[in-house]
Protein backbone atom coordinates (compact mmCIF):
# COMPACT_ATOMS: atom_id res chain seq x y z
CA UNK A 1 0.00 0.00 0.00
CA UNK A 2 1.31 3.43 -0.88
CA UNK A 3 2.01 5.71 2.00
CA UNK A 4 -0.26 8.63 1.60
CA UNK A 5 -1.49 11.23 3.96
CA UNK A 6 -5.20 11.13 3.98
CA UNK A 7 -6.73 14.49 4.58
CA UNK A 8 -9.93 14.01 6.48
CA UNK A 9 -11.86 17.04 7.54
CA UNK A 10 -12.55 17.36 11.27
CA UNK A 11 -16.25 17.44 10.48
CA UNK A 12 -16.06 13.99 8.87
CA UNK A 13 -14.16 12.67 11.85
CA UNK A 14 -16.79 14.03 14.20
CA UNK A 15 -19.58 12.62 12.05
CA UNK A 16 -17.97 9.19 12.07
CA UNK A 17 -17.52 9.32 15.81
CA UNK A 18 -21.16 10.20 16.36
CA UNK A 19 -22.25 7.43 14.00
CA UNK A 20 -20.10 4.91 15.86
CA UNK A 21 -21.52 5.92 19.22
CA UNK A 22 -25.00 5.64 17.77
CA UNK A 23 -24.26 2.14 16.47
CA UNK A 24 -22.80 1.13 19.80
CA UNK A 25 -25.82 2.40 21.71
CA UNK A 26 -28.18 0.62 19.31
CA UNK A 27 -26.27 -2.66 19.68
CA UNK A 28 -26.26 -2.37 23.48
CA UNK A 29 -29.94 -1.51 23.71
CA UNK A 30 -30.80 -4.38 21.39
CA UNK A 31 -28.71 -6.83 23.37
CA UNK A 32 -30.74 -6.02 26.48
CA UNK A 33 -34.04 -5.84 24.62
CA UNK A 34 -33.47 -9.36 23.31
CA UNK A 35 -33.93 -10.72 26.83
CA UNK A 36 -37.61 -9.87 26.44
CA UNK A 37 -38.02 -11.15 22.89
CA UNK A 38 -37.79 -14.90 22.36
CA UNK A 39 -36.01 -16.97 21.29
CA UNK A 40 -33.48 -16.81 24.11
CA UNK A 41 -30.43 -18.96 23.57
CA UNK A 42 -29.91 -20.48 27.02
CA UNK A 43 -27.41 -23.05 25.76
CA UNK A 44 -25.16 -20.41 24.24
CA UNK A 45 -25.43 -18.34 27.39
CA UNK A 46 -24.28 -21.25 29.56
CA UNK A 47 -21.41 -21.98 27.21
CA UNK A 48 -20.29 -18.36 27.39
CA UNK A 49 -20.69 -18.32 31.16
CA UNK A 50 -18.40 -21.32 31.36
CA UNK A 51 -15.87 -19.72 29.04
CA UNK A 52 -15.89 -16.36 30.79
CA UNK A 53 -16.48 -17.44 34.38
CA UNK A 54 -14.41 -20.55 34.85
CA UNK A 55 -11.90 -19.54 32.22
CA UNK A 56 -11.15 -16.32 34.11
CA UNK A 57 -11.03 -17.93 37.53
CA UNK A 58 -7.24 -18.54 37.71
CA UNK A 59 -6.33 -15.00 36.72
CA UNK A 60 -8.93 -13.51 39.05
CA UNK A 61 -7.69 -15.62 41.97
CA UNK A 62 -4.11 -14.60 41.30
CA UNK A 63 -4.78 -10.88 40.93
CA UNK A 64 -7.22 -10.83 43.84
CA UNK A 65 -4.70 -12.37 46.21
CA UNK A 66 -1.80 -10.18 45.14
CA UNK A 67 -3.72 -6.92 45.07
CA UNK A 68 -5.03 -7.60 48.59
CA UNK A 69 -1.53 -8.41 49.78
CA UNK A 70 -0.08 -5.33 48.10
CA UNK A 71 -2.76 -3.11 49.54
CA UNK A 72 -1.97 -4.40 53.02
CA UNK A 73 1.76 -4.10 52.52
CA UNK A 74 1.57 -0.54 51.22
CA UNK A 75 -0.73 0.77 53.89
CA UNK A 76 0.99 -1.12 56.71
CA UNK A 77 4.11 1.01 56.71
CA UNK A 78 2.07 4.20 56.87
CA UNK A 79 -0.28 2.81 59.52
CA UNK A 80 2.64 1.57 61.60
CA UNK A 81 4.14 5.05 61.68
CA UNK A 82 0.91 6.35 63.23
CA UNK A 83 0.49 3.32 65.43
CA UNK A 84 -2.67 2.23 63.71
CA UNK A 85 -1.67 -1.16 62.35
CA UNK A 86 -4.91 -2.61 63.69
CA UNK A 87 -6.80 -0.61 61.06
CA UNK A 88 -5.31 -2.70 58.31
CA UNK A 89 -8.32 -5.02 58.06
CA UNK A 90 -10.68 -2.12 57.55
CA UNK A 91 -8.45 -0.58 54.92
CA UNK A 92 -8.07 -3.72 52.87
CA UNK A 93 -11.74 -4.57 53.21
CA UNK A 94 -12.99 -1.13 52.09
CA UNK A 95 -10.45 -0.83 49.32
CA UNK A 96 -11.11 -4.27 47.91
CA UNK A 97 -14.89 -4.34 48.15
CA UNK A 98 -15.74 -0.88 46.89
CA UNK A 99 -12.98 -0.22 44.42
CA UNK A 100 -10.14 -2.58 43.68
CA UNK A 101 -12.07 -5.84 43.54
CA UNK A 102 -14.51 -4.71 40.86
CA UNK A 103 -11.88 -2.66 39.02
CA UNK A 104 -9.13 -5.24 38.67
CA UNK A 105 -11.58 -8.03 37.92
CA UNK A 106 -13.17 -5.83 35.29
CA UNK A 107 -9.85 -4.93 33.71
CA UNK A 108 -8.60 -8.51 33.73
CA UNK A 109 -11.77 -9.87 32.15
CA UNK A 110 -11.72 -6.98 29.67
CA UNK A 111 -8.24 -7.97 28.59
CA UNK A 112 -9.22 -11.58 28.34
CA UNK A 113 -12.76 -11.58 27.03
CA UNK A 114 -13.41 -8.27 25.25
CA UNK A 115 -10.54 -9.22 22.96
CA UNK A 116 -11.82 -12.77 22.63
CA UNK A 117 -15.30 -11.61 21.65
CA UNK A 118 -14.00 -9.01 19.20
CA UNK A 119 -11.72 -11.49 17.46
CA UNK A 120 -14.29 -14.26 17.38
CA UNK A 121 -17.09 -12.12 15.99
CA UNK A 122 -14.63 -10.25 13.75
CA UNK A 123 -13.48 -13.50 12.16
CA UNK A 124 -17.08 -14.51 11.67
CA UNK A 125 -17.72 -11.20 9.89
CA UNK A 126 -14.77 -11.47 7.51
CA UNK A 127 -15.52 -15.11 6.65
CA UNK A 128 -19.18 -14.22 6.01
CA UNK A 129 -20.38 -16.47 8.82
CA UNK A 130 -22.50 -13.66 10.23
CA UNK A 131 -24.12 -13.13 6.83
CA UNK A 132 -24.65 -16.89 6.62
CA UNK A 133 -26.35 -16.84 10.01
CA UNK A 134 -28.65 -14.01 8.95
CA UNK A 135 -29.33 -15.86 5.71
CA UNK A 136 -30.36 -18.93 7.72
CA UNK A 137 -32.96 -16.80 9.44
CA UNK A 138 -31.19 -16.38 12.79
CA UNK A 139 -30.62 -13.00 14.40
CA UNK A 140 -26.90 -12.76 15.30
CA UNK A 141 -27.78 -10.19 17.92
CA UNK A 142 -29.86 -12.80 19.73
CA UNK A 143 -27.70 -15.80 19.04
CA UNK A 144 -24.27 -14.23 19.59
CA UNK A 145 -24.45 -10.90 21.40
CA UNK A 146 -27.15 -11.32 24.04
CA UNK A 147 -25.69 -14.58 25.44
CA UNK A 148 -22.30 -12.89 25.78
CA UNK A 149 -23.75 -9.81 27.48
CA UNK A 150 -25.85 -11.85 29.88
CA UNK A 151 -23.06 -14.27 30.70
CA UNK A 152 -20.41 -11.59 31.22
CA UNK A 153 -22.53 -9.42 33.51
CA UNK A 154 -23.62 -12.46 35.51
CA UNK A 155 -20.20 -14.05 35.83
CA UNK A 156 -18.34 -10.83 36.57
CA UNK A 157 -20.60 -10.37 39.57
CA UNK A 158 -19.39 -13.65 41.07
CA UNK A 159 -15.83 -13.27 39.92
CA UNK A 160 -15.71 -9.95 41.74
CA UNK A 161 -16.99 -11.50 44.96
CA UNK A 162 -14.25 -14.10 44.68
CA UNK A 163 -11.63 -11.43 44.01
CA UNK A 164 -12.86 -9.44 47.03
CA UNK A 165 -12.60 -12.46 49.33
CA UNK A 166 -9.19 -13.45 48.06
CA UNK A 167 -8.00 -9.85 48.39
CA UNK A 168 -9.00 -10.03 52.03
CA UNK A 169 -7.13 -13.33 52.39
CA UNK A 170 -4.04 -11.76 50.78
CA UNK A 171 -4.31 -8.81 53.14
CA UNK A 172 -4.68 -11.12 56.09
CA UNK A 173 -1.58 -13.09 55.07
CA UNK A 174 0.51 -9.92 55.04
CA UNK A 175 -1.01 -8.48 58.21
CA UNK A 176 -0.71 -11.71 60.16
CA UNK A 177 2.52 -13.17 58.88
CA UNK A 178 4.56 -9.99 58.38
CA UNK A 179 3.08 -7.67 60.96
CA UNK A 180 1.85 -10.16 63.52
CA UNK A 181 -1.71 -8.91 63.58
CA UNK A 182 -4.21 -11.16 65.34
CA UNK A 183 -6.31 -13.15 62.84
CA UNK A 184 -9.55 -12.63 64.72
CA UNK A 185 -8.98 -8.91 65.03
CA UNK A 186 -8.24 -8.61 61.31
CA UNK A 187 -11.41 -10.36 60.16
CA UNK A 188 -13.66 -8.66 62.71
CA UNK A 189 -12.53 -5.18 61.73
CA UNK A 190 -12.63 -6.06 58.05
CA UNK A 191 -16.19 -7.25 58.40
CA UNK A 192 -17.53 -4.56 60.68
CA UNK A 193 -16.36 -1.61 58.62
CA UNK A 194 -18.57 -2.56 55.68
CA UNK A 195 -21.95 -0.86 55.48
CA UNK A 196 -24.73 -1.44 52.99
CA UNK A 197 -23.51 1.34 50.72
CA UNK A 198 -20.09 -0.26 50.28
CA UNK A 199 -21.41 -3.66 49.45
CA UNK A 200 -23.99 -2.16 47.11
CA UNK A 201 -21.30 -0.17 45.27
CA UNK A 202 -19.12 -3.20 45.04
CA UNK A 203 -21.84 -5.33 43.53
CA UNK A 204 -23.34 -2.82 41.11
CA UNK A 205 -20.03 -2.08 39.50
CA UNK A 206 -19.21 -5.57 38.20
CA UNK A 207 -22.60 -5.87 36.53
CA UNK A 208 -21.98 -2.56 34.75
CA UNK A 209 -18.42 -3.50 33.87
CA UNK A 210 -19.57 -6.85 32.52
CA UNK A 211 -22.08 -5.06 30.35
CA UNK A 212 -19.37 -2.70 29.09
CA UNK A 213 -16.87 -5.46 28.37
CA UNK A 214 -19.31 -7.59 26.39
CA UNK A 215 -21.04 -4.83 24.45
CA UNK A 216 -17.76 -3.12 23.53
CA UNK A 217 -16.17 -6.44 22.56
CA UNK A 218 -19.17 -7.39 20.44
CA UNK A 219 -19.43 -3.94 18.91
CA UNK A 220 -15.82 -3.95 17.70
CA UNK A 221 -16.19 -7.50 16.49
CA UNK A 222 -19.35 -6.79 14.54
CA UNK A 223 -17.96 -3.61 12.97
CA UNK A 224 -14.80 -5.32 11.72
CA UNK A 225 -13.80 -4.51 8.17
CA UNK A 226 -10.82 -5.46 6.07
CA UNK A 227 -9.80 -9.07 6.54
CA UNK A 228 -7.47 -10.59 9.08
CA UNK A 229 -5.73 -7.30 9.71
CA UNK A 230 -9.10 -5.79 10.55
CA UNK A 231 -9.71 -8.54 13.11
CA UNK A 232 -6.42 -7.71 14.82
CA UNK A 233 -7.32 -4.03 14.88
CA UNK A 234 -10.77 -4.69 16.34
CA UNK A 235 -9.29 -6.90 19.02
CA UNK A 236 -6.84 -4.27 20.23
CA UNK A 237 -9.40 -1.51 20.06
CA UNK A 238 -11.91 -3.57 22.03
CA UNK A 239 -9.49 -4.03 24.93
CA UNK A 240 -8.41 -0.40 24.99
CA UNK A 241 -11.93 0.99 24.64
CA UNK A 242 -13.48 -1.31 27.23
CA UNK A 243 -10.69 -0.65 29.76
CA UNK A 244 -10.94 3.11 29.35
CA UNK A 245 -14.71 2.99 29.53
CA UNK A 246 -14.53 0.91 32.71
CA UNK A 247 -12.27 3.50 34.35
CA UNK A 248 -14.52 6.38 33.32
CA UNK A 249 -17.73 4.65 34.38
CA UNK A 250 -16.10 3.60 37.64
CA UNK A 251 -15.42 7.20 38.49
CA UNK A 252 -18.93 8.38 37.76
CA UNK A 253 -20.64 5.46 39.47
CA UNK A 254 -18.60 6.05 42.61
CA UNK A 255 -19.47 9.73 42.46
CA UNK A 256 -23.15 9.00 41.90
CA UNK A 257 -23.35 6.59 44.79
CA UNK A 258 -21.65 9.10 47.05
CA UNK A 259 -24.21 11.67 45.95
CA UNK A 260 -27.13 9.33 46.61
CA UNK A 261 -25.99 7.77 49.89
CA UNK A 262 -23.90 10.68 51.14
CA UNK A 263 -20.17 10.59 51.78
CA UNK A 264 -19.20 8.50 54.74
Amino acid sequence: MALELELTSPIDVAKNAVASVQDYVRLSAQSVGNFFRPPIYMGDMLQQADLIGFGSLPIVILTGLSVGALLALNSASTLQRFGGITLIGQLVSLGMVTELGPLITGLMVAGRNASGMASELGSMIVTEQIDAMRALGTDPSKKLITPRVGATAFMLFFLTIIADLLGLVGGWAVAHLLFGLDTNQYWTSAWQILVFRDVFTGLVKPVLFGFIISTVGCYYGMSTTGGTQGVGRSTTQAVVASSVLILIVDFFVTKLIFAVFGVR
Binding site: T127, E128, Q129, D131, A132, M133, R134, A135, L136, G137, T138, D139
Partner: peptide, 22 residues
Protein backbone atom coordinates in the same frame (compact mmCIF):
# COMPACT_ATOMS: atom_id res chain seq x y z
CA UNK B 1 -34.42 -6.98 9.41
CA UNK B 2 -36.78 -8.74 11.80
CA UNK B 3 -39.40 -9.32 9.09
CA UNK B 4 -36.67 -10.54 6.77
CA UNK B 5 -35.64 -13.39 9.10
CA UNK B 6 -38.93 -15.12 8.35
CA UNK B 7 -38.70 -14.66 4.59
CA UNK B 8 -35.11 -15.91 4.57
CA UNK B 9 -36.31 -19.14 6.09
CA UNK B 10 -37.88 -19.90 2.71
CA UNK B 11 -34.70 -19.20 0.77
CA UNK B 12 -31.41 -21.10 0.71
CA UNK B 13 -28.07 -19.55 -0.16
CA UNK B 14 -24.65 -21.04 -0.86
CA UNK B 15 -21.93 -18.46 -0.29
CA UNK B 16 -18.92 -18.13 -2.54
CA UNK B 17 -16.53 -19.14 0.24
CA UNK B 18 -19.07 -21.58 1.74
CA UNK B 19 -19.22 -19.61 5.03
CA UNK B 20 -19.65 -22.70 7.19
CA UNK B 21 -19.64 -22.09 10.93
CA UNK B 22 -16.14 -23.22 11.78
Amino acid sequence: ERELFELRGRVGIVFQESALFD
